[in-house]
Design a protein around this nucleic acid. Sequence first.
DNA 1: TTGTATGCGTTATCAG
DNA 2: CTGATAACGCATACAA
Lengths: 340, 340
Amino acid sequence: MIAKRLQTTRATINDVAAVAGVSRGTVSRVLNSEVYVSDAAKKAVEDAIEQVGYVRNTAARNLVTRQSHAIGLIVHEPHSLFLEDPNIGSILLGTNSVLSDNDYQLVSLIIDSDRDSHRVAEYLTGGFVDGVIIVSARAHDPIARVVSQIGIPAAFVGHPVDIEGIPYVGIDNFSAAKAITTRLMQTGRRTIGMIAAGLDRDSGQDRVAGFTAALGEAFDPELVVKVPLYAHASGIEGMRELLARAPHVDGVFAASDAIAAGVLDVLRDTGRSVPGDVGVVGFDDSAWATRSQPPLSTVHQPAGQLGRRAAESVLAQIRGEAVDSAGTFLDTHIVWRDSA
Amino acid sequence: MIAKRLQTTRATINDVAAVAGVSRGTVSRVLNSEVYVSDAAKKAVEDAIEQVGYVRNTAARNLVTRQSHAIGLIVHEPHSLFLEDPNIGSILLGTNSVLSDNDYQLVSLIIDSDRDSHRVAEYLTGGFVDGVIIVSARAHDPIARVVSQIGIPAAFVGHPVDIEGIPYVGIDNFSAAKAITTRLMQTGRRTIGMIAAGLDRDSGQDRVAGFTAALGEAFDPELVVKVPLYAHASGIEGMRELLARAPHVDGVFAASDAIAAGVLDVLRDTGRSVPGDVGVVGFDDSAWATRSQPPLSTVHQPAGQLGRRAAESVLAQIRGEAVDSAGTFLDTHIVWRDSA
DNA sequence: TTGTATGCGTTATCAG
DNA sequence: CTGATAACGCATACAA
């Protein structure tokens, strides 16, 4: 079965006006349910709309109203990570829920290449969105630059270290990392290492800083292994390296649950028991944490709330309200399970 | 630090024209790098663009060119599932990659409520997108209806049972389910049950049908437990029910890896060994499959390819090419691991 | 209460 | 090669 689907030219306000026997102005008025329109005219227009199958061209409308009632959410993740990151879905849903309540359309834009980056930049300047939320931007992120330049209402979830003036909502990675590391120390571990990731954004850097602060005197830079991604594979790779550097390690703080899961795998393969020989803690409280054997002790992160707050900030800016450009932090808490 | 971010009114072609001392037409021509424009004029315009900080308003351009160079991807999943479904991310990335290559912007629209549904419908008719890809549509999906009505170029990934005339790309769920069930039977299992899900879409129904066909004479409807979602929690719930109905079951086909993971948990909790006492197989070959203990034997599904093909179909329709509205199926293959 | 005229920012079609 | 001028589809002051 072959079918050539052809774009039927759609009916316009003019068509409706003609059929209803009124002017375009009147049609427009009933469309926007304004006050001064007679019942007769209203009826006629509604019938005509039905008859010609009219649907308003919102793009045209936006051109004159100068707003699109749409907000972009930009996800800028390395390819593979996008699939693994447990927070993105929650952020997306949280954002969508507040935008939906306010009758704004969320459009997610994903950046997976330089080409994408340019196209998205053009999209943002094109008037398609009234505001933008940026997730997991990295240092020197070109999109963040563009957003900053064109002055469109925006908010970061997390934030790049080098952009000022755009509000952000995030968690206090430093304190959370410090807290869970301290907790790990309290279980009596002597030699604690860290698999650090995402050093090109604030989250990654702050977690290392928190870890360092918690250890204090006991801190040994040799024991922090740096890997590029918050991913399972990176956890395997990182833990192998850590073991090579310090075979007698008895505690590990992984920068994410996915990494921690990789750590667990290496530990099992090398015949070490968890939490018997080594205590392991993660970060995120994602599905990785509950699915691991043993389940991970980790930091719970309110991803959905992060998305909601970012959306609220953008909406407030659109309404012309003043917002705190210094950013807000949401609370995290430790979830203690069996891995440490 | 308080900052009131204000929308600076952006420069238009008129501004550029004024500064460059040429007409709007000429500016437009250099913008679209057309042939007939003198070097002098070109230089003047480029300088002016730089000077006034002009960026083209694509929305206005679309109004006249009647195309947006954007394609919508609609994800219609129940809230929780959205976070767990391993295929969505891959489909997204696959779609984005071909659209990106063709200079189209992918905008993802998520539907999480009736309100979303209406808003998205309006968005589609608003001229913001030239085409649309719909993932995981269900029977009687209102969005699918709207898409069908307005005749916008579209493609389904998977497809609802009740919509005709829109091309789709999917996998042969029936054959795949039949194949892996047969394979499971060949391991010597006698009493094989199934945890079925997603019965409101073709994938769910076809997997049950394949299972049924493989069993033939041995099929017992009592051993098919129906759950609503392709989710981990549904797997737990479903397996408990199956065990209640048939404690002596020695083989299980789970409609998804997430479900299979739940099945594994219940089996472990009830003291049954896998694959010793019970053989378990899943579907998807997602992260669940490799992370489970033991790793799952499952059906590999080319999610990324699904997205790519759907995008190609929509692009072809936009170019006015004829497309096969009957749909195309991509190959799946069995990945045999340790769970059966 | 309704119609008319004008403009939103571009592109496209003309003459010139 | 370039400059007017007319759309694109809609909203909106203003007039009636």
